[in-house]
Each structure stands twice: as structure tokens, then as C-alpha cells.
Design a protein around this nucleic acid. Structure first.
Lengths: 251, 251
DNA sequence: CCGACTCTGATTGTATACGATTTTGTATAC
DNA sequence: GTATACAAAATCGTATACAATCAGAGTCGG
């Protein structure tokens, strides 16, 4: 397993005899593996297998896997009637994508309403920061060849700027909870959408305008539109173009 | 600990020598303990303590506690800077309550939009079921003395009827994820609100009317209003009335 | 009397052993 | 050739042991 990984090396057994907390790194590693498609949808994942692969015992792996189940990146596989739970990488399908994006839109839209309660000075400052983030995103989108890592980072930064300025801790936590899955779809289908980011540019611009001067309802509408339309774009691209990025993992 | 529990007995060591899956029951038990206030906000929770109390080893308790952290019912206590995480029952405060209810409103509102896409016949049927659920809720609210367990069950049933008919699996999962915390606040502050459920009746009636004949926007607005106004009621009740239900747990 | 230091107890994180159940592979009968 | 029965491997859930670290009490010095 993980034949395509660039670093199949064991987990941080780096310095000294210290036994660093392994569950966190294991989780992060597994999550990224799934989000970036190195572990294909449907691939079965076993505790011992991952543990061997990463050079830790089953205990932290088990904890990480439970975490991933909670994230929706791993799902219990069919039979397990007895009480046993065999896990596999969650499948990807357009219906889930649509729901996920709508949820993200509803949550981020709810957060963004808070921008209307900001003082005029702060609203302007936020709009300015969003403009800067958007410019950075466009710059990344203009580079050739496309650097997807950078592009995703810039795109995330735009939304993070908005959320950090408007959402409370609970809302932020909710958004963080679904982000791995959203990122997974984004990463997977990106080649189908790009390199034409025109609609995204326009929707982001509308968000910035709304943050600058619209009512709470207007801001929320703009944010939701971005997510809802993004979902529609991806679903359509999927229906037309077929499979997305070739998964280097194995099924 | 758990002096006030009615059944401090060990977990299901009931039949045969079978070792039943313990993590699930441990989670459910701990969650209910917190939701119903038997474990007071701020109370520290240790793995070994719970394990002894419930007659299982630390392993399933550990799993359950991680689950509860994810639910937001347990939080890492102050320092934990090193890499160690001591856990305590999450505190309760009006700001969190407000955010939680707004999130629930946004999600359930998003779900309820789906009612507008239903066939006329099914919309009417859903409105009928909601009406029945609402009548059951009012009946429970009219009983004296108030049976909170029954009241909560009926109230949940109303919302569940709506969500089950309109939300996809992802959205339902999101709502389930925040429900324990919502229930916790609901349970804790109920004595402050009741027995005057007039506003709740009116808001539920508005939801039913909207489901019967309004647009997606109208339905969503009605659902949101119920949650947003509910949050406002609880926050206000808290500000006026002071502490809610006396916690029988220890701090 | 107050502050810094040390030591001990408590608590978490990880590793490993064991039992139980499911799944898979093989051989045999029809 | 197919299906069934049995055996063997695999995998999960739990328990327990051990190591490392942190919090707090107690003590000593100023």
C-alpha cells in the first residue's frame, strides 16, 4: 500500500527517544492521503496495515480512524452485521458533493451575515482584506503550469478571511468539520473545472461588494450563491467530463 | 462520582461470557449524563475514573471520550500545552447557545427548503404529519405536572419529522452532530422557559403553514425564525432568571 | 510572609496480548 | 462445473502493562 507516496517513511520518530503523540500525525497523514486521492474511494483500510505502514502501534491508528469516520472520509463497509466494523474510504458521488456544498454555503452564509454587524471601518477593512486575498487567488490561477496546491491554498485563504472575521468558534468548528470532505471533492474535480475561473471570480467579487455595503441578507445571498453555483458547476462538469483527477491510489 | 445516578451499575456484562461492544454504551451513557446535567459543566473527567465507575477498561472509555470531544461536550482543560489533554465537561454560556441555535436553524432551514420540491400530495402529507406531531407536543406541554422527558421527545419528534422528510444523509448527519449540545441547553434551560409555550406554538404553526404552501424561501424563513427566536428566548430567560435547572452533578 | 524548587502522585499516550467473529480459501460431494 | 462444508487466516474490540509528562503539595530559603 502507499506505493505512490513520496514519503512512506515512518511517523516522526525523529529526535531522541521521545515518543511523540502519534495519533495526531497519523490522522493528518491519513486524511491528506484520502483528500488528495492517494487512497481511492472504496479502498479498504485496516488498522494493522496502516500501523505497519506508519511504524506505530494499532492504538493511535485506531483513534485516527475513528476520527476519520467522524469526518465522513471513512465509512463502515456493508456486512459488519455482528458488531464488527470494517472500514473503507468513503465513495464519492455527485449527490454527496451537492449536499456538502450546500451545507458549507449555509454555514458560511450564516457566518458572513455577521459582517453586517461590523462597524463601518471594520467592514471596509474586511472588504479590503478579501480583495487582497482574491487578487492573490487570481494570481495563482494565472500561473502556468497550474500549481494546484497553491491555488487551493489561495482559494481557502479567501474563504478563511471571511469566516475568521465573522464566525464564532462554534460555527468555525462546524465548517472545519466538513472541510476535509469539501477539499476532497475540490481536489478531485479541479481539473474538470479549471482553468476557467470566470464564474468564481464574479461570485467572489459579488461577495466583496456585498461585504462592503449590502445588508445581512445580501451578504448571505452572495456567499450562498458562490457555494451553490460551485456545486452546480462541479456536478455538471462531472456529468459531462466523466472521471476527475486520476486516482493514484488503488481500489 | 455519579452519586445521583439511578443506575451506577456496570456496563452490560449481562449475558454469557460474551464481551459486548462497550464503547457505544459508554458513549451513550456519558453523553446522557452530560446532556441531562448530571455531570456539571467544568467537571473534570478522567479515563480511569469513568472506566472504574462503569466496570470496563480504559480503552472503550477513551474512545467514547474522544467522541464526546468531537461533539463538543468535553473540552480540553486550560494548559494542555505540552501534548497532554485533560478533559472537562464543556462549560455552558449564552454566546455558545446562541451560535448553536443559529447553526441548527441554518441547517434545518436548508433542509426544509427541500419541502418546496416535493410533489403537492407529499407536501400535504408532510404538513399533516407535522400537524399531528405538533398536537402531540401540545398535549405533552399541557400535562401537569410537566414530564420533561416526554416533552422533549415530542418536541424532537416535530423537528425530526421535518428533517427526515427533507434532508439528505449528509445534512442529517450534521444536525445529529450538534444535537447533543442543543439538547443539553434545551434540557438545562427548559424550566426557565416553560410552561408558556405560546411563542413556540405560533412558530411551529408558521412552519406547518409554510410547508403546506409557501416557497422554499418562505419555508426556510419560518424554520429559521423558530430557532433564532428560540435562542433569543433562552438567552433572555437566562439573563433574567439566572441559573437554570439545578445541576445534580458536581463541579 | 512570600516565592522558587523539588518531589511525588496522578493521568495520559502508546504498545502489546488475547479472545471472538468474520471472511476467505480449499477440498469434497453431487 | 457448482455448491457446500470445513479449516485457516485476518481483523476487530477489549484489557492490561509501561513509559512519559504534568499538576499540585510540600519544603526550603530569602
Amino acid at each position: 500500500m502507499f506505493h505512490s507516496m513520496t514519503t512512506p517513511a515512518p511517523i516522526a520518530r525523529s529526535a531522541g527517544q521521545h515518543r511523540p503523540r502519534a495519533a495526531g500525525p497519523v490522522y493528518a497523514r491519513l486524511r491528506d492521503l484520502i483528500v488528495r486521492g492517494r487512497l481511492a474511494p472504496g479502498a479498504r483500510v485496516t488498522e494493522a496495515g496502516i500501523a505497519d505502514e506508519l511504524g506505530v502501534s494499532r492504538t493511535p491508528v485506531r483513534e485516527a480512524m475513528h476520527h476519520l469516520v467522524r469526518d465522513g472520509l471513512l465509512v463502515p463497509v456493508d456486512g459488519h452485521g455482528g458488531g464488527r466494523t470494517r472500514l473503507a474510504v468513503a465513495p464519492m458521488d455527485p449527490a454527496t458533493l451537492d449536499q456538502l456544498y450546500r451545507i458549507a454555503g449555509a454555514l458560511e452564509g450564516l457566518a458572513a451575515r455577521g459582517a453586517a454587524r461590523l462597524a463601518a471601518r471594520e467592514r471596509a477593512a474586511l472588504a479590503g482584506r478579501l480583495g487582497a486575498a482574491e487578487r492573490a487567488f487570481r494570481a495563482a490561477a494565472a500561473r502556468r503550469p497550474l500549481d494546484y496546491d497553491r491555488l487551493f491554498e489561495r482559494h481557502d485563504a479567501f474563504h478563511r478571511t471571511l469566516v475568521d472575521a465573522t464566525a464564532g468558534p462554534e460555527l468555525r468548528a462546524q465548517l472545519e468539520a466538513i472541510r476535509p470532505r469539501v477539499d476532497r471533492y475540490e481536489w478531485f474535480y479541479a481539473p474538470l473545472v479549471g482553468p476557467d475561473f470566470g464564474p468564481t471570480y464574479r461570485e467572489h467579487a459579488a461577495i466583496i461588494r456585498a461585504v462592503r455595503s449590502a445588508t445581512a441578507e445580501g451578504i448571505e445571498r452572495a456567499v450562498r450563491a458562490n457555494w451553490f453555483l460551485g456545486a452546480a458547476r462541479l456536478v455538471r462538469a462531472l456529468a459531462e467530463g466523466g472521471a476527475g483527477r486520476p486516482a493514484s491510489g488503488r481500489a
